[in-house]
Amino acid sequence: MKQILLAEDEEVLRMLIEDTFEDENYMIDVAADGGEAMEFLQNNRYDLVILDYMMPVYTGLEIVEKIRHAETNKHTKILILSAKSQEFEQKQILETGADYFMAKPFSPLKLLELVGDILNENS
């Protein structure tokens, strides 16, 4: 079973994404800020990490950096959620080492679809 980590500080979005993925039988861990996310990452291996761009403690980008320089999840796929939807901003985000980008506000179904594609591609 695929393992996903979601880090999103917005409570309602977090609940929505968590429920959506659990309904589709994904294993999903959820973190409410960058600090919690780092704890999960140190102790578990994930197939995909979904990170909110703006979060307390560590931002999404800081976490990308940490993931890429650590051993455990070095090759995990990273998806960034952000309200920064301008093309150059997206490019900047992807240049830091994230693999995918989804602009906020997003449709939960689209997110599910994208995640499905990412994980299938991977296997």
């Binding site: 500080d9 917005e10 309602v12 979005l13 929505l16 906020k104 506000p105 997003f106 449709s107 939960p108």
Partner: peptide
């Protein structure tokens, strides 16, 4: 900001 970020995904256009 947090309302704005969430309301769009929940299709609450007026709130957004």
């Amino acid at each position: 900001h947090s309302i704005k970020g969430t309301s769009g995904t929940l299709q609450l256009d007026e709130l957004m």
